[in-house]
Write a protein that binds this DNA or RNA. Structure first.
Lengths: 167, 167, 167, 167
DNA sequence: TTTT
DNA sequence: TTTT
């Protein structure tokens, strides 16, 4: 099917420190429980009410997962852009179960930290936090690649693209 | 919590005719099974591969649900903008189960039909299909309403809002 | 034309305090200069580079404009969701000029403050800052209205819509 | 600045065939004039009204520009996701002028064709149109790269990622 | 200048 | 003109 779009944009707060899992082959995957909320004034009572929604955000990207592990903590406010994915699994009774997650993977995925940097430290590394798009990771790949492709194909668009890559 | 955003944007095709349910108090609710897909060329085999993702879209709006019932059919390509919502329920064995849905409700919800109109007919009604955002309808409703609500001492926000309605 | 979407989503910092103008008929309009930026590491020099983009955000909504005036200050980080609009005007030499702005107006517009509330004060009012979507406010207005408009036989879309308002 | 987002999402119709320009160094750039529109029923007259907005979409990507040149024609309905960019230039009288464009470049850019494929032909090539994300271009780079990274790191996640890359 |  |  063509002409398809699957995009989720969330701004919320982390309910806990991210969990970092590792695949058999050693790749890091970060899981974040993210809370978004809406508030409104109740029509009848006039009271302010709030509804909180919890989302499971899964980051399939080792480099990004590590950054998340390092900088994203419980309570942090973040922006994530990914896609909806529903995973099928079996519970202990053998029933089919489904879990829907917001997956950041590959392109068109993005994560931004929205809290003011306080304190110090992590700026030191030079790379610094901030624009933690998956971009960055792709960038890594893309640039190591580009040194080839550029010379090879001379496509200087890919050159510019690489220049544009965050980092 | 403030500063929260919960937004889903999908473009996909309906897997079946929408289902219209009705709440106890008679409101119509439309359910759409929407498929999005990604395709890519497998690097090793060179074959084209495709991954389809199915989404449950729930439309809590009688008028919109009726429009959906009337014009959205199996196979139709639509744009939906709503929010992620996870609903808890009990299965027959009494286990907690969760279903995540894309909910179109209230503001910041939108539905657009992306297929070319073929044939005729439904334009006749005057209202016509096309921009089936909640927008348009709210606008209509909001304005007829505002003359009342404003006088009624309704929040003067609604007054401003009406002014804000696209022209 | 049907099947149309025009959406802009920005997260950035205000370059100055918002400007509040007023239309002839007394409605407030807020203007914000918003900076977004991208940064990346230059491939050849290894230096970190940054490109800043400035946006003009125009808020056509008296209540929201006032909230903006009150709480959004120079340096504030905000989320805005609106639409692209290009305005034609004449310069002093009589040449046609065009300005493109991000317009928040009517539905499908949203503004969220992303800075942590520090200090005190503005929570007191009860309404509180935070979710300054047009949402909330429309909801208020819309709901007080709905009890009327429904009876009044207002478009039954508005009826549904009101029902749809978050709770 | 960190924590920044600059995103534009449009669904509209092409007002003319795309223009393909070429930079001095031979890279293709596509320009599309895209119309979005809103329609609503006038509150007082009850008439249906429509407001059309024109956008300039600029695609800085040789491969994508060529696909656009080949498949996107006047009247086509497309989805584009890019970012806002304002370009400064001098008019013939030496005045500063600014043009704001929706730029598709690098990551987080996407273009989808939303018209039903009619007729035949272009499906034949095997690659087919459909998901014309910039992804595709990155994919090209990324995959040539991945053949390295995979062997090197064996991370089959990167393998999956690459596999996921459109085209 | 598109589209409905 | 913001922010990091």
């Amino acid at each position: 099917m063509s002409g398809s779009v699957n995009k989720v944009i969330l701004i919320g707060n982390c309910g806990a420190d991210p969990e970092i899992r590792r695949t058999q082959d050693g790749r890091a995957i970060a899981n974040i429980r993210l809370a978004t909320s809406e508030s409104w004034r109740d029509r009848t009572s006039g009271e302010r009410r709030e509804k909180v929604e919890w989302h499971t955000v899964v980051i399939f990207n080792e480099a990004l997962a590590k950054i998340v592990e390092q900088y994203v903590k419980k309570g942090a406010k973040i922006y994530v852009e990914g896609q909806l994915q529903t995973r099928k699994w079996q519970d202990t009774q053998g029933n089919d179960r489904y879990s829907t997650e917001v997956v950041l993977q590959g392109f068109n995925a993005k994560l931004e930290m929205l809290d003011k940097r306080q304190g110090s430290g992590y700026q030191a590394g030079g790379s610094g936090p901030g624009d933690y798009g998956l971009d960055e990771d792709r960038a890594t790949g893309a640039s190591s690649q580009s040194s080839n492709s550029q010379t090879a194909g001379g496509g200087n668009f890919s050159r510019d693209l690489d220049d544009d890559i965050p980092f």
